[in-house]
Amino acid sequence: MSRALISTERLTKTFTRHGGFVFSRQPSVYAVSDINIQLSEGETLGIVGESGSGKTTLARLLLQLEKPTSGIVRFRGRAFGELNGREVREFRNTVQAVFQDPYSSLSPRMRIGEIVAEPLVVARGLRGQIVQRRVGQVLEQVGLKVSTAELYPHELSGGQRQRVAIARALAAAPKAIVLDEPVSSLDVSIRAQVLNLLRQLQRDEQLAYLFISHDLSSVRYLCQRIAVMYLGRAIEEGPADAVLSGPLHPYTQLLRAAALPRWKGQPGVQHSYRAAEATLPSKANDGCNFAPRCPQFNATCLRSAPLRRETRPGHFVACHEC
């Protein structure tokens, strides 16, 4: 049994929506609702979801960039609130992140060398030659020239910037990297380069990945386990192969059908699904979130939210009907 690096217990985050004019406060929205996940050393976990699924909020919660409304995030089994200063620094050294937009990820007024060195300087407190050498090392590791350190972000292309972001995440030799849509803003030909690089690095360094994406295919390429999120809830979770070749939840089935190649004139499956799109849930336990779009819902689905149950070892689903 591998050690859990990060785990969550009933993790929930609500936001208050400010809509319309000055005082019209709307009820809270559950961005992340009752999430229990675990990321162990060397493991790759994919989080799949569309816009509004709460996957990015989940990433921010795990990185301690947001405080949960309720529930706990644990680092090596200890609740985050109980960590002392040294342990918090340890957490910052252990868990790094790469975000979607390579343009906003790099501070425009800093040289690449300084950007990549930041985790070493800040969390490790290192200076001088050691830092220089490590920066050169990780830049080469991600396929960039050592001289890139002298450049500014605007002198690089999108693909090169995303390599810099990965180099920076690697600099302090972390155990885990949270990757939030790291390839979705890149062109197809560059995307393949970066996906290959990520897979290579994971194997070489025995890294744990929390890979967040809307794209089932790249999740399948990179991850051993996947969790599918819909409007803040994890509706299906299990080994990548099992979930993608035999999806149980109707939403996972829909996602899969949408991602499979199709030819003109060939009928799609989407007609059994209603055109309605995801609507934000404003109450927590008021039926299944997917019921309004589901082709096989019944009265129970509208009344109570389905609980997570294990159908096969390690394969969980939250659905009344399957």
Binding site: V88, V95, S105, E118, V122, R168
Partner: peptide, 17 residues
């Protein structure tokens, strides 16, 4: 709100920095 500020926090930077 830019990603590089969040990443600086992930790296453990203080507010002053």
């Amino acid at each position: 709100e830019r990603a590089f500020v969040a990443l600086a926090q992930v790296a453990g930077s203080s507010s002053a920095r």
